[in-house]
């Protein structure tokens, strides 16, 4: 079970958190302008990487804040956590 360093609360156990899928997928500003394919790209297409993955997490049983995490899915190493709207500290 991970030990996650919530950017607002500090280190807490994974059971306090909820994973929220891939990060940095921005909701289109003008969905009506998009073709079916473009909208489907936003709606359904998600990466499933073995290696460095950018994810959203929510401290659901804590401060309830959403934040981002960089995790190596091959060994579950958490490389970084950072707040929503911030640039990833690593590529």
């Amino acid at each position: 079970m991970f030990l996650i360093n919530c950017p607002f609360c500090g280190e807490r156990e994974q059971s306090e958190f909820k994973a929220g899928g891939e990060a940095h997928i921005v909701r289109p500003k003008q969905p009506t302008e998009l073709s079916d394919d473009q909208w489907a790209e936003y709606l359904f297409m998600r990466k499933n990487i073995k290696g460095i993955q950018f994810e959203r997490w929510n401290h659901i049983h804590g401060c309830r804040k959403w934040f981002n995490m960089v995790r190596d899915t091959s060994n579950d190493e958490i490389k970084a956590v950072y707040k929503m709207g911030e640039k990833p500290p690593i590529k």
Binding site: R27, R56, N58, K65, W66, M84
Partner: peptide, 13 residues
């Protein structure tokens, strides 16, 4: 509530 918070915090801060 979780979904509304999600949109507020991540899409429409």
């Amino acid at each position: 509530l979780g979904k509304l918070e999600d949109y507020l915090q991540t899409e429409w801060p």
